[in-house]
Design a binder for these strands. Structure first.
Length: 171
DNA sequence: CCCTGATTCGC
DNA sequence: GCGAATCAGG
């Protein structure tokens, strides 16, 4: 009479309810309960009618998560290219790059778009149309797309920007 | 890339 | 009822 597996027993469901209402994420709950995946937790939460809890500031989607499984529902809607465009005020100037040596990049950090992470500086370096185009990749300020150095350049006051425009080098 | 929850559907 | 696969968004 071996148990067929730790299904959703009373205890597990109660623990699930407690952790979920406590604000724990599905993956955390799954790891804590053990034996279940995060999808299992979410699925159970929905079946229990606990979904749509009050969230504060997590990365959860509000209520738009449905996906058309049948082709009858899927419409030939043009997909958004989901382009990540830093488009800093300096991007236009990058194309009109000054005659500085292109290899004058700081060896501190240069990353490709795939290597870019959320905490990395998105300051463009080099020609975007060139394969050797990189981003700064240095430690970005939390909540900002740039590191401290490039944040100063990007968020200069208009007056100051005008004054130091030619002094700005794109390294 | 990481992460989050939402939904569908075969089992 | 269950949950992997998938989808949608941050």
């Amino acid at each position: 009479m071996a148990d067929a597996g730790p299904s959703w027993t009373k205890e597990r469901v109660e623990l699930l309810k407690r952790l979920w209402s406590d604000g724990r994420s599905a993956s955390q709950i799954a790891a804590e309960i053990g034996g279940v995946s995060r999808n299992a937790v979410i699925g159970k939460v929905h079946r229990l009618g606990l979904a749509g809890r009050v969230l504060k500031s997590n990365g959860a989607a509000p209520a738009v998560g449905r996906r058309p499984r049948s082709e009858a529902e899927s419409a030939p809607v043009a997909e958004t290219p989901s382009v990540l465009a830093p488009a800093p005020p300096a991007l236009a100037l990058v194309q009109a790059a000054p005659p500085c040596t292109e290899v004058a990049l700081p060896e501190s950090a240069r990353v490709t778009i795939m290597e870019l992470r959320e905490f990395m500086c998105r300051w463009p370096m080099g020609d975007p149309s060139t394969p050797d185009f990189r981003f700064c990749g240095d430690r970005a300020i939390t909540g900002l797309p740039y590191c401290t150095h490039h944040s100063r350049i990007a968020y200069q006051p208009a007056a100051e920007r005008k004054r130091d425009r030619k002094a700005v080098g794109f390294r």
